[in-house]
Design a protein around this nucleic acid. Sequence first.
DNA 1: AGCATGACGAACA
DNA 2: GTGTTCGCCATGC
Length: 112
Amino acid sequence: MEHKNKDFFANVYEVVKLIPEGRVTSYGAIANYLGVKGSARMVGWAMNAAHGMQDVPAHRVVNREGLLTGKNHFDDPNEMQRLLESENIKINKDKVVDFKARFWDPAIELAI
DNA sequence: AGCATGACGAACA
DNA sequence: GTGTTCGCCATGC
């Protein structure tokens, strides 16, 4: 394990922690914000390593379609949806309802 | 060294 | 709108 990955992990977690309640973002958006556009898989990889971290709201990160692709990596596959619904986010067939309005893009929101 | 896989995404048919 | 292909890059076999 080299430090480069560690920094990348830390950066990902920092961004995820900044996602407001009731909003969601995508792996690609985070990758883009961190300057590694095109490497969304690495963000997913980082999230996999974030499994178990209490202060990282991993449930607010979905794929570009608003699909809850990471649900199977939670302790309970139902946990992700449950957490989102507790933040007033509606889910239909593993997909965030009105994803466009719920989408939070760090490259835009954190550009200030 | 190759080859497959993956919490992804974009381009293309 | 759906399915395929490719780029991405760390990991594991």
